[in-house]
Amino acid sequence: MLKIKNLHASIEGKDILNGINLEIKPGEVHAIMGPNGSGKSTLASVLAGREEYEVTDGEIEYLGKDLLDLSPEDRAREGVFLAFQYPVEIPGVSTTNFLKTAINQIREYRGQEPLDAVSFLTTMKEKMKLVEIDQALLSRSLNEGFSGGEKKRNEIFQMAMLEPKLSILDETDSGLDIDALRIVANGVNKLKTSETSTIVVTHYQRLLDYIVPDFVHVLYKGKIVKSGDKNLALELEEKGYDWIKEEVDTATA
């Protein structure tokens, strides 16, 4: 599904990613963890195509295509989805309205007919249940005045509507109470198939009790310095990141 090779990226001349290598196969869940400022969110942003970041070296192959060659919208049309750490508030644009535009532009890209209003509504109702989101919320301006939990549920709702192949959850759990966390995780789990892959960027092991990863990677100073299974996350929860930092810093010293 996704092959990242020796990825280097910088913002405003500052190097953030210093050679990431990562391969993700269909059906897999990969968790990316790491201390603050290690480059987790940068990796998510580069995958989604945020323009402020400059890729200075390396390559990303996604379903056989050069991902870095695609515009952000074409990445989405090819099945990449980023759940934002901080979903943007957009006054005057309702979730319903913009999703209709998005879905039809994606369908057009794939050479499909536009979705008629009835099918759209039927799909919407079905997916709403998945994240226990209210229709009234979706008719309001996108994320405007939404609570933290509502914003994150809306992200997962959009993910459900767009049916991506590769989902990247950027700290979707941060700031959520346990009920909201369960709802969000539950939604993600229900959307998972053997054909889709998920990258879970998180600070906290707690989320991984609900979304169980096949692999856990620790990012530090823009590199993956340790990989393991879900037990690595538990170990990090218990011991923190200092021992990893020490290991790396000693090795590079």
């Binding site: 989604a48 515009s71 952000p72 990445r75 989405a76 980023l82 943007v88 957009i90």
Partner: peptide, 11 residues
């Protein structure tokens, strides 16, 4: 906001 919409597939 522009990037948000693009990341959902809107040109």
């Amino acid at each position: 906001a522009l990037f948000y919409l693009q990341s959902r597939g809107v040109g």
